[in-house]
Design a protein around this nucleic acid. Structure first.
Lengths: 210, 210
DNA sequence: TGATAAATCACCTTTTTAGGGGATGTATAG
DNA sequence: CTATACATCCCCTAAAAAGGTGATTTATCA
């Protein structure tokens, strides 16, 4: 019997191409497409899939959320994440949610097929560039500083326009504490002031904007 | 003789799929791939292309830049832009640079092929969703205020971390003037402070980052 | 156990921004 | 010609941020 693969991907050109690659291979695979998370979850309830090829950027939900839900409902299902950008924290979150593999869309076709093969056979697979990313030996611009949970929380509030005092009130902490975190953020991102800080974190996707 | 198409796209899965679609169609097309802008420009110098399928998000250069360069060197070449996100200002800039068509990657395969056909035959083509976007009947946020050239200039400097005083010195105007512009910007974008202002303009692409 | 990182709190000074008033000249469009 | 928008300039006050220099507790890790 063929193995059943669900492709959750909002770009028809990509999902179509993946399906052709898979059905054209020697893997004996049958594919179903879901252009968004909602349809993807609906498919999951009606069928018994062996593998999900999961895009991280979905129109209605983040792939991380989707992964979490899918794995909780169907613990046996295998999930291979596909994404355009190599962001360390995204990879970490996906693996935390139980993803079995991670491949960049900039990978070669062979790399992608190889990854699918590995994950289908029960192994974990990190694509070209992902392993280096996780080891910190990254050659591209992933030199973003690590920030703590609290810093990230305060960063979002700063971006939302709250003053130190307002943040302090909201989090039931001293304004001095908020100020410390703000200063640490400026330091970590080598930002001269709040304006540059926000420019950096928004453009690099450190915080989610609406 | 076949028509020559250059695919400038950093995702092999997408460019491969496009190439298959094109060579498998009745269009008598021959494809070359460039995974980045640099190789794309190199290809342009060595061949005589009829069409460029151009991704907006390239690793080494924005598609808008690439379009500008390509059109200035080879005015006769036709350019069809492909992108993942529908942002009005991006479409406008591309068309300003002489792009002949614009298609979202979320489009159906047929829509994409149709667009390629149209552009190859000399017409302009705006894909599904793009026309609505340009007409303002869009479901997303096109309610961005108009800002003047001077305001835009000062906005960039604010985002770069310059203080009012530094901006005043740079532009040889009074700090009062800079402050007026800053206040107008806050007003126009309904921003409580500089942090939100920058968050808005960076996320909506009002200013270019790096 | 000792080191380290994270989160918390504190004080002081100076600079910068925010928010509120205004005013003037100059182009441009109706 | 006359609004209107734009860019320019001015003053005031209060609030906020930037910059410096500390400390304490807690937890985790080697």
């Amino acid at each position: 019997m063929p193995q059943l693969v669900l492709i959750v991907e909002d770009h028809p050109i990509v999902s179509e191409s993946l399906a052709q690659l898979l059905t054209g291979s020697d893997l004996n695979i049958q594919c179903l497409h879901a252009p968004n998370a909602a349809k993807g979850l609906a498919f999951l309830n009606g069928n018994s899939f062996d593998l999900i090829l999961l895009d991280i950027n979905l129109p209605d939900m983040s792939g991380i959320e989707f992964c979490k839900i899918a794995k909780s409902r169907f613990p046996g299902i295998r999930i291979l994440a596909l994404t355009t950008i190599a962001q360390r924290h995204v990879v970490e979150k996906m693996l935390d949610q139980g993803a079995d593999g991670f491949i960049l869309k900039t990978s070669d076709i062979d790399d992608i097929i190889g990854g699918i093969r590995q994950v289908l056979s029960g192994k974990q697979y990190l694509g070209k560039g992902v392993k280096e990313l996780m080891n910190g030996h990254s050659n591209d611009n992933n030199d973003l500083p690590m920030i703590t949970k609290r810093e990230s929380e305060i960063l979002k509030l700063i971006a939302d326009g709250l003053t130190n005092q307002e943040i302090a009130d909201k989090l039931f902490i001293s304004i001095f504490t908020v100020d410390s975190h703000r200063k640490n953020l400026l330091l970590k991102f080598s930002a001269k002031n709040t304006a540059t800080l926000i420019k950096i974190v928004v453009s690099k996707g450190v915080i989610d904007v609406d």
